[in-house]
Design a protein around this nucleic acid. Sequence first.
DNA 1: CCGGTAGCAATATAGACGTACGGTTATAGC
DNA 2: GCTATAACCGTACGTCTATATTGCTACCGG
Lengths: 210, 210
Amino acid sequence: MPRVADHDARHGQITDAVQRLIVRNGLTAVTVARTAAEAGMSVGLVQHYFTAKDEMLLATFTRVNERFTSRVDELVHRGEAEGCTIAEMLRQALTELMPLDDARRAELLVRRAFADTAAHNACLAAVQRETLVGIRSRVAQAIRNGTVCGEVGQGVDAAGQALQIVAFAEGLALHTHIDPDGTPDRAVLAALDDHLSRVFTGTCRHAQLG
Amino acid sequence: MPRVADHDARHGQITDAVQRLIVRNGLTAVTVARTAAEAGMSVGLVQHYFTAKDEMLLATFTRVNERFTSRVDELVHRGEAEGCTIAEMLRQALTELMPLDDARRAELLVRRAFADTAAHNACLAAVQRETLVGIRSRVAQAIRNGTVCGEVGQGVDAAGQALQIVAFAEGLALHTHIDPDGTPDRAVLAALDDHLSRVFTGTCRHAQLG
DNA sequence: CCGGTAGCAATATAGACGTACGGTTATAGC
DNA sequence: GCTATAACCGTACGTCTATATTGCTACCGG
């Protein structure tokens, strides 16, 4: 009956503001007042959409992780559409996780910012864990597909190798972020290729349409 | 002339208290009042040893990172004394970085707790980076030694492989920590072995003393 | 066209926090 | 044994924060 507003849009405005604040000054510096200012609205309005600050932060973290996962999915789907090999698809998807531009650096920054909080909060921990196992299971499926089509050798432990690949990618992202000078972009990409080539040792039987 | 106190001991008491608080409730929950209480002293005394809270946190982070690095060194030295192969030494050292018991879980927790702050504070960032490159250069040296003695093939890029190994170990530690159920201890250790065995492919020429 | 509810803003409040400060105690040097 | 000074304590102060509260405004349904 009364005037209406786009709730999703508002939530997005607020969580985006939180993200920007985290990138600029860290999670510690995020206050509802500053968030409101950054989002261009009043403190009261932020409260109207998030009853408590915790909710606001949880929503932000969830949103970032969802975007993170869906970006991987998108890459995979595009790769499938274009008839890429599985190895190539995976390579692109994992490259997407590296902090090689500002946007991805920001994303990593935000995900890392919640490390402390997530370790002592069940909700945040769940989001973090689900993101991780989500990525891992996608990689595992890719490996299983590779086994079928011939890119991956028979008898390879898909889950185990997926764990290794994702852990490796995450660690690489961390190193790049902490010590960019010591890990030039091409070294990072080369390391990724190197690791993937140890799992994807064959060529696809179906990919003979050069 | 006046009464004297063991400054190092006091600093240790305080930073230990900070660590315990971080493990229990997170970095966010660390206040000087709580730290004083945890350390069994007055707020004034904490101030007497650390002018500002920032100093206190920096000292804590530095201490944890030093312990972290020196633990690796210790493992390496012990390995050398016992005549282990380089691969075996490295395996033990990297295993030491995994959160497989409470002490190491706590250490990882503390190091991760500073992720957000370190990303926006030059001093903390420096400590973090130096720890990382310190570990990495030690591993690189181990690989170079391995090349000399025959455990590692000729023409292997020591720095590049060191980056890969450490990044992998760190990523593995992270996964274990975030999703312990999905990464049982033996899977983690197996993954480590698997990765190391790809670099250490030969046997030491000198190790023929049965 | 009008009443009521959601959208929105401004302010009030209560608490927690870092740090400054004044005071007390104990001891090493003379 | 006196004294200067470091070790140590308790508290008060100013600031910052999350949140509760109050009130105004715009608009949909009837």
